[in-house]
Structures are given as structure tokens and as C-alpha cells.
């Protein structure tokens, strides 16, 4: 959501992932939901055994609208020393997902760790993972409506966005005329002295 003070740039990139050559050390590849599973299976065969992360991003003005991003690392279970591991290859597979058919085949059977990552994308972006054994919300409450990380989802939630922010300045003591209740230390000391006098306490 662009803020009212700062209008978005006229030249704001519609697809930021495509504007310039990669600046990190991963091999980057684009694919589509129909081919993503075959690609990931092949990559796993090639030795990219560790699925680091599955993330997503929403580009409302682009077609396809969503990206599901797989980050892979070439790591072998036999690599027991730093020298053997060296600097393993990273791989980033971006899968463009159209809005009208936001479905991607699951890879939770290839990598057990994909389970929660895919649930989180379903929860926050509304992308379905076909074949997932337990596709339900993970971060948001079960009965939540809407997908919070989509760009068209209001920041403060749909119910509260309509109401204006409370004007805290109007609630201050000075504006509402409420007398201050706090006492200064000196006033308290005087009060104690007075009470002692009245009770005839010599101390």
C-alpha cells in the first residue's frame, strides 16, 4: 500500500525480478506450475537435496500475478567437514502462478520440510497446493477470511480499515478538561506533615 505522503514512482517496476541481472550467487530459473514439479524432481536428482525455503510474492499488475519461489542448496548427507562442503551451489526456481488458476503441485512428498512452507503460502497468499496432505491455515486463525500478504489486502485488516484512526490528541487530559490527578512530592510531604500535626504525633 503506498502511503498518501509519498506517491509511488511512475517508473515503479511491475516485475522487479526481471529488471536486472542477478546480484546474488544463485542460479535463477523461471518456470510455470505445469513444469515446476518435474524441474524440482530433476534438481533433487542433480544433488540439490536441501530445500531451504518456499516463499511467495504478489505482483498485482503483472501476469502471472504470483511468484512461488523455491530456494535450493546442493548439499550431500555425506558432507561431514567444512572442506567437503566448500561453497555449495544455490538454486532459485521462480514459478509464476496465474490469479485465475492459483494452483501449484505440492512437493511435500519430495521434501518433508515443504509441508509448513506450502501451508503458509496457502494461508497468506491463497495459492493452492494440489496433493498437499493437510492444506489448512497455519499462521492465521482457522476461520479467517482473505489472504493478508496479498497486496490488495488492507494493512489493518478489512474490518478496521474503514474506521479512521483514533485521534489520541483529543483524549489527552488537557483537551478534555480532566484535572490532573498526580501530586507533586512536595505536596505529598506537606500532606503528611499536616496529618501528623492533627494526630499529635511528636515524631
Amino acid at each position: 500500500m503506498p502511503s498518501p505522503q509519498m506517491p509511488p514512482l511512475a517508473t515503479s517496476a511491475i516485475d522487479p525480478t526481471a529488471v536486472r541481472p542477478p546480484i546474488d550467487d544463485a542460479i535463477i530459473e523461471r518456470t510455470a506450475p505445469a513444469r515446476v514439479r518435474a524441474r524440482l524432481e530433476a534438481l533433487k536428482e542433480e544433488g540439490f537435496a536441501l530445500l531451504l525455503d518456499v516463499g511467495a510474492a504478489d505482483y498485482p499488475n503483472r501476469k502471472p500475478r504470483f511468484d512461488v519461489v523455491y530456494h535450493l542448496l546442493k548439499l550431500s548427507p555425506a558432507a561431514a567437514s567444512v572442506a567437503q562442503i566448500g561453497s555449495p551451489q544455490r538454486y532459485r526456481l521462480l514459478c509464476g502462478v496465474p490469479e485465475d488458476d492459483a494452483t501449484v503441485p505440492t512437493v511435500s512428498d519430495l521434501w518433508k520440510s515443504a509441508d509448513w512452507a506450502e501451508r503458509e503460502i496457502f494461508d497468506l497468499f491463497g495459492i493452492q497446493f494440489s496433493g498437499h496432505p493437510d492444506l489448512r491455515r497455519i499462521q492465521m486463525p482457522v476461520h479467517w477470511e482473505g489472504y493478508p500478504l496479498r497486496k490488495d489486502y488492507p494493512l489493518r485488516g478489512p474490518a478496521r480499515e474503514k474506521a479512521p484512526r483514533p485521534d489520541f490528541a483529543l483524549k489527552s487530559n488537557i483537551v478534555s478538561g480532566t484535572p490532573p490527578t498526580g501530586k507533586t512530592a512536595q505536596a505529598l510531604a506537606e500532606q503528611v506533615m499536616q496529618a501528623r500535626k492533627e494526630h499529635g504525633d511528636g515524631a
Binding site: S3, L9, T11, S12, P16, L52, H71
Partner: peptide
């Protein structure tokens, strides 16, 4: 391995910050 997949669309705010 903590990682951020950060996307910028050229604006003054991050477009997407995905945490690993």
C-alpha cells in the same frame, strides 16, 4: 540459516521481505 528474500520495485519501501 536465516535469510531474507528481499524484493524492491524501485520505491522507498520494501516490496516484499520473505524470511527464511
Amino acid at each position: 540459516e536465516l535469510a531474507y528474500y528481499v524484493v524492491s520495485d524501485g520505491n522507498n519501501k520494501p516490496y516484499r521481505v520473505r524470511t527464511r
